[in-house]
């Protein structure tokens, strides 16, 4: 295993770490703000995964340059990442506003207390 191949797998290892950290937070933390932080971690993991996938060695970013069109990478994954970042901002904002209202109504943001909908 060369150094280069290890370096190439590094982003994917980071993705797994970020994603599992996020999932761990969502599963085991009781604080709603921390749960949303976990979701944000997962979002970053997913975005990093897509960006790492889009990288092709020896090809150019699809920006207006003099490079041949066949030498450019497909920007689908980049477009998906940008969309995902925008959506992530929207969902995080909505989630945080829900938490603000929950704090007003329940006086707590612990998931053990926020459980009037049950049975």
């Amino acid at each position: 295993m060369t150094l280069e191949s290890i370096l190439m797998t590094l982003p994917y290892i980071t993705v797994v770490v970020l994603f599992s950290l996020g999932l761990f937070t969502v599963l085991f933390k009781k604080n709603l703000i921390k749960i949303i932080m976990g979701i944000a971690l997962m979002q970053n993991g997913a975005n990093l995964f897509l960006v790492s996938l889009a990288y092709r060695r020896g090809e150019y970013a699809p920006i207006f340059t003099s490079a041949e069109s066949t030498d450019m990478v497909m920007p689908t994954a980049h477009a998906l990442t940008l969309t995902s970042i925008v959506i992530g901002v929207a969902t995080t904002a909505l989630l945080l506003s829900f938490v603000i209202m929950i704090k007003r109504h329940y006086g707590s943001i612990n998931t053990d207390d926020v459980r009037r909908c049950k049975e």
Binding site: L27, T111, E119
Partner: peptide, 17 residues
């Protein structure tokens, strides 16, 4: 069954996982 529906967010996530 009734007590299984605890209303806790974490429990909902456990079931999915």
């Amino acid at each position: 069954l009734v007590e299984g529906h605890t209303g806790k967010l974490n429990d909902y996530m456990y079931w999915v996982v």
